[in-house]
Amino acid sequence: MKCTASRFSRRQFLAAGAAGAATIVSGGCDRLSAAPTFREFLAGAEGLTQRVQRALLWRGSRAREYSRADISPVFRANGSQDASALPPGYSDAAERGFPDWRLQVNGLVNRPSSFTLRDIRQLPARSQITRHDCVEGWSCIGGWTGLPLSVVLEGVGLKPEARFVVFHCSDELPLYRDGRNPFYESIDLIDAYHPQTILAYDLNGMPLDVAHGAPLRLRVERQLGYKMAKFLNRIEIVSRLDTVRGGKGGTWEDDGYEWYAGI
């Protein structure tokens, strides 16, 4: 009897020890996370992931495309989703089909250009039913139609020093203030020229609604959802990202998320 009791208390001791250790680990890691140099050291693994994935995985590999039957009944929207994150009058413009909206393309290009929604819809289109993976962990399958980004880039002509494509958006996270800190994102030319990288205007056969980024959003199918900027209004070609806005290549990146979101 005595023996069992002592074993039981030993088990309790171990359980309490494990819980105590977890608390210490959790608290210790908080302090380490708060130290910028340590966080940067850990974040160095992102470069390793990107280099290894780019080296081992075929650059031209395509994300799986699904059938109509696989389309999720509800495609969840995330990030900015309604008028509160958008400039005044955005919903009205959406209802009228964005007559005054333009997509500017500038930066390190030979022919800076501006496109109306009608221009974009008249250019060659690509449709793809793909899976959208949110960094939070969930996935939805949707059918997208849009203009391949490569068509735009070939149209405007990139200068030799061009390295990255920056997407400037109309929304401000989490709430629209004065439009001085709008959402932005960026990708490199490997993803920019990938055949599945499109500027999408339709979701499941319907024009994009405001929640999903009307009138135009990016699809980069080999990365996570947060890379896929919505409410696009300008595409800028640059040679480096550290001089653009917050310097990390995107709104989420400036907030601590990885620039390379292939995992």
Binding site: S26, C29, D30, S33, R39, L42, A43, A45, E46, Y257
Partner: peptide
């Protein structure tokens, strides 16, 4: 890790 909600830092770890 961290002890508060911070997905970005959790991923880094």
């Amino acid at each position: 890790i961290p002890s508060f909600q911070d997905l970005a830092t959790g991923r880094v770890w």
